[in-house]
């Protein structure tokens, strides 16, 4: 069951731009709920990222255990933040519309699609990408199993399959071949590695290893 968020303690307005904030306040004047500006706990050392016509917004986010303080165009998706700003290109852009699963990452431990997640909405969230799942010299059990079962060909859907697979097991939806097939169906693979992927996941699940 979802937990409660203490709403009253939440920052009201994340715009760093004072002028905009004032404009906003004027719009809402008389409502007695003029929002207060938010400068964030980590206003120092903010990494300025090329913005644009949208007012940049501050964002504090943890990516693979590293806390980042950023200033970004609110239009930037979590996927484009990872790939284009943070050089974490392991997360793939397949369709950009939530229809392929290649961009799957973990946010606060849950598998989500980073292409449909606005980066600014990930304030204080913990994001784990494929780069955080395992390393070349210390592969995650699923990564090892994917290699063993040849659960890919071109490799482009693979990071998404792996991130999704880890959660599929954690969610308790990897009890059988049929269950894995159903709960992994949000991850398309055009090379058709499906049976090998399913076998890899089943093996890791049955091994009881921590994922």
């Amino acid at each position: 069951m979802a937990e409660e968020f203490p709403a009253e303690n939440e920052p009201a307005l994340l715009h760093e731009n004072r002028r905009l904030f004032l404009k906003q306040s004027v719009t809402l004047a008389g409502l007695a709920l003029a929002p207060t500006p938010f400068f964030g706990p980590a206003a120092l050392n903010v990494e300025e990222i090329p913005g644009g016509d949208a007012e940049n917004v501050k964002l504090s986010i943890s990516v693979n255990g590293v806390k980042k303080s950023l200033s970004i165009d609110p239009r930037v998706t979590l996927l484009d933040l990872l790939r284009e700003r943070l050089a974490l290109t392991g997360t793939k852009k397949g369709c950009d519309f939530g229809q392929c699963g290649a961009c799957t990452v973990h946010v606060d431990g849950q598998r989500v699609l980073s292409c449909l997640s606005l980066a600014v909405m990930q304030q204080d969230k913990k994001v784990v990408t494929i780069e955080g799942l395992g390393k070349l010299d210390q592969l995650h059990p699923l990564q090892e199993a994917f290699i063993k079962h040849d659960g890919f060909q071109c490799g482009y859907c693979t990071p998404g399959q792996l991130m999704s697979a880890a959660c599929c097991i954690r969610e308790g939806k990897a009890g059988s071949e049929a269950e894995i097939q159903e709960y992994m169906s949000g991850n398309l693979c055009r090379c058709g590695a499906y049976p090998n992927i399913v076998n890899a996941i089943l093996e890791v699940k049955n091994s009881g290893q921590k994922v």
Binding site: A12, L13, L31, P74
Partner: peptide, 12 residues
Amino acid sequence: PFQYIRPKNVKE
């Protein structure tokens, strides 16, 4: 481009 806002409560 759009402005991103987080209201404090439902009323807001």
